[in-house]
Structures are given as C-alpha cells and as structure tokens.
Deep mutational scan, measured.
Amino acid sequence: TEELDSELELPAGWEKIEDPVYGIYYVDHINRKTQYENPVLEAKRKKQLE
C-alpha cells in the first residue's frame, strides 16, 4: 500500500519530493534523474523478475 511505501528507507543520494502539481516523485542526486516509482520497490520488483 502507499502507506508502507513511504516507510521504506531510500538509498543514499535519493530524495522524496511531494509536489502539489506532479505528486510524489523521487530524485536520484547521484545520477541526476527523477522517477515516480519508489527506488526501493523498483529494486524489489526487478529482483522478483529474475
């Protein structure tokens, strides 16, 4: 659920942004990119696909 997503600790260099226009998204300051999917959940999903 969304509530559990926010409890996950983000990897180093990541920041969660709550924007009133664009909603919640994540900033990867190391690689200078943004995405809507939580990077922790993304990594778990990719691992399940292997």
Rank of each mutant, 00 (worst) to 15 (best):
K16W: 00
D19N: 02
P11Y: 03
D19Y: 00
P39S: 02
E7R: 13
P39A: 05
A12E: 15
L41V: 14
D5M: 04
E37Q: 09
L49H: 12
L10R: 02
K47D: 09
V21A: 15
S6W: 03
L8V: 06
E7K: 15
W14G: 03
S6Q: 12
K33P: 00
L49M: 15
K44G: 12
Y36E: 09
V27M: 14
P11T: 08
I17P: 00
Y26W: 07
E15Q: 08
E15R: 04
H29V: 08
L41Q: 14
E18H: 11
N38W: 10
Q48A: 12
P39R: 01
G13V: 01
Q48C: 10
V21R: 13
W14H: 02
L10G: 02
D5E: 09
K46N: 04
I30V: 12
E37H: 06
D28Q: 00
T1I: 05
K33V: 13
Y26H: 04
Q35K: 03
D5G: 14
I30N: 04
K16Q: 08
T34F: 04
V21E: 15
R32L: 10
E50W: 15
K46S: 11
I17M: 12
E7S: 10
S6C: 03
D5H: 09
E42K: 03
Q48L: 06
E42N: 06
A43P: 09
L10C: 05
E15G: 02
W14R: 04
E18F: 07
I17G: 02
T34E: 06
D28W: 00
N38C: 01
T34M: 07
K46I: 11
P11E: 05
Y36V: 11
L49K: 13
K46V: 12
E3P: 01
H29N: 13
K44D: 11
R45H: 02
K16R: 13
D28C: 00
G13K: 05
E18N: 13
S6M: 09
D19W: 00
E2P: 06
E7M: 12
D28L: 00
K44V: 06
K46C: 11
E2N: 15
K16A: 03
V21S: 09
A12F: 15
E7D: 12
L49P: 12
H29S: 07
I30A: 11
E15Y: 03
E42T: 11
W14K: 03
A43H: 09
R32E: 14
L8F: 11
P39T: 01
G23T: 00
K46Y: 09
E50A: 14
L41P: 10
